[in-house]
Simulated assay, not measured.
Amino acid sequence: MDFWASFWNIIWFFVSAFIFIAYLIALFSIITDLFRDRELSGGLKALWFIALIFVSLPTALIYLIVRGKGMAERSRKNIEESTRAAEDYIRTVAQVSPSDEIAKAKALHESGAITAEEYEHLKARALGTSSASVPQQ
């Protein structure tokens, strides 16, 4: 009997820990959204924050019900901006001109690392033309 009592105590501990961690994640998401919102005045932000500290569970539920849709929109917008910034950065860093690619392919062809057919394929790809239009030898 003692084994089953301790077994259910362990299960209860894990369920409680899961609920607590989920609540903390929700709370941090709410606080992040609160400071991300540009439409909300500083006084209202402070009011929401104080309410979250003193009456946290009901305030968190009210915030999610009242401002949940806007919270999702702000999060989506932030993700899109981050993705766009990362893609722009990657483009600026990794940008290689077609002439550079052709020069590299020519050097590989001259060294014997690739065949003439592979060189033509790389050249066509660098120029943006279809590899089907390149004549096969």
Rank of each mutant, 00 (worst) to 15 (best):
A60L: 11
I62Y: 11
I62M: 11
I62L: 13
Y63G: 04
L64H: 10
I65K: 13
I65D: 14
V66I: 11
G68S: 02
G68I: 05
G70Q: 14
M71P: 14
M71D: 10
A72R: 11
A72I: 15
R74F: 06
S75D: 10
K77L: 12
N78Y: 12
N78I: 11
E80L: 08
E80F: 10
E81D: 08
S82D: 07
S82H: 05
R84A: 07
A85V: 03
A85M: 03
A86K: 02
A86T: 07
Y89E: 15
Y89I: 12
I90Q: 02
T92K: 04
V93K: 04
Q95D: 06
V96M: 00
S99G: 05
D100C: 01
D100Y: 01
D100P: 02
E101T: 07
I102V: 02
A103D: 06
K104C: 10
A105W: 01
A105K: 00
A105C: 07
A107D: 12
L108Y: 03
E110H: 12
S111P: 03
S111T: 11
G112A: 01
G112Y: 03
A113P: 05
A113Q: 13
T115Y: 07
A116E: 15
A116Q: 15
A116N: 15
A116R: 15
E117V: 09
Y119Q: 08
Y119P: 04
E120W: 11
H121E: 11
L122T: 02
K123E: 01
K123A: 04
A124F: 04
R125E: 04
R125Y: 03
A126K: 00
A126S: 03
L127V: 04
G128V: 00
T129Y: 14
